[in-house]
Amino acid sequence: MFRRTFIRSAIAATAVLALAACGGGEDPLSSGDGAGGGSAPDKVDSLTVGSANFAESQVLAEIYAQALEAKGIKVNRKLNIGARELYMAAIQDKSVDLLPEYTGATLVYFKKDATENEAEAVYKALPDALPDGLEVLNKSEAADEDAIVVTQETAKKYSLKSIGDLKAVSKDMVAGGGPEFKTRTAGLAGMKDKYGVEFKEFKTLDAGGPLSLKALKDNTIQVTQFFTTQSAIKDNNLVVLEDPEHIHLPNNIVPLIRTDHKSPEVADTLNAVQAKLTTSALTDLVKRAEGGSESAAAVAKDWLSQNPLT
């Protein structure tokens, strides 16, 4: 954890007490600072930014961090924490104060029975789903959706167009991917529940990474999960299966932040980033970061230099 001055601690404590006293306050979407509500400090001197264990999350975290540093705010980094279950635990136990997140994935993480499946409805449902002390700021138009993918050869062999088409053949197939793909609603659990799709085996590989891609191309596995901003889908001519039952919710990029670190300056800076991000730009950033020749920090610095926030 980073050090706090006595004054900073007093402000945070006052904010927490005020939140407990007011019990929610005004309409959480009415302030223009994003969803969430509750009391926030007037000024933040430092905070800790975290990220998941994949390139896109690390690039977004670096963009947030460098944008805040340009405002004179000290930023500590805890990147590459791991899967959602790990980094959500980190922000709830105050090990980190800010994360790049995704609207749909965040909603179903905290509200398993969420029924919203349109982008704006998902975003507006977040305030009531988030635990006390957490908020989201403005969502970006940039989005990265989960995608169930197969090769062109597999799609042609089994006449696959949607996830439901797998039901008749999946018991002869092997699925593979990150360990979370096996248990999440956006993965095998949702495929079984919504489409009746079950596989004969699951191979634990990586989340939309080179191991999963190689296994798919080698036909060691026949189905995996990638993400729509990954160039690997287009570069390898993979087929994204349609999802009419919406196990994959809209996933607009959104900052998830602790209320006790959401000063007006922090919120305005991050919302300015959100307004500049686009899906096409994010796809390019991911390709550069996944290539291995550029670090997440370098890719983020270049994007900020081309997209000044003021």
Rank of each mutant, 00 (worst) to 15 (best):
T151H: 01
I73E: 01
S51T: 02
E120C: 08
E69Y: 08
L19M: 14
A296G: 12
V49E: 05
K74H: 13
K111V: 03
A298D: 15
Q306W: 12
F6Q: 13
M191H: 08
D132N: 14
Q152G: 15
G291T: 08
P210L: 07
K301Y: 09
L256S: 06
T151R: 01
T183R: 14
T269W: 02
K94N: 15
T185Y: 13
T224R: 07
V75D: 03
E85H: 13
Y109T: 13
F227H: 15
G82A: 06
P100C: 01
V96M: 04
P131T: 03
Q92W: 03
V266N: 04
S231M: 11
N236F: 08
K74E: 14
Y64G: 01
E62L: 02
K139I: 10
F227C: 09
G176W: 06
E265I: 07
F181A: 12
I247R: 06
L130A: 09
L241T: 01
K94G: 10
P41S: 00
E198A: 02
G25T: 04
T154M: 03
K192Y: 07
D268M: 10
K43Q: 11
V223G: 08
G292F: 10
S57H: 00
E153P: 05
R288Y: 11
G209V: 07
N138V: 03
G25E: 05
V108M: 11
A90T: 01
D146I: 08
T106V: 10
T106F: 05
A232T: 13
K78D: 13
D42S: 15
K139D: 08
T224H: 04
Q66P: 07
P308C: 13
D45Y: 09
N271D: 11
D284V: 12
L79N: 01
D42I: 09
D260A: 11
E290Y: 10
G190M: 06
A215D: 04
D243A: 03
R4Q: 15
K139V: 05
V75F: 06
A55Y: 01
V169F: 10
I253V: 15
G104E: 03
A142I: 04
V286K: 07
V239R: 01
S212M: 05
E198W: 00
D206Q: 03
R184S: 14
V108A: 06
L126K: 02
D268E: 15
E26V: 13
P210M: 05
N236Y: 07
K124E: 12
Q274R: 11
E56R: 15
E62W: 04
N80V: 07
F202N: 00
E242C: 05
A90C: 01
V150Y: 02
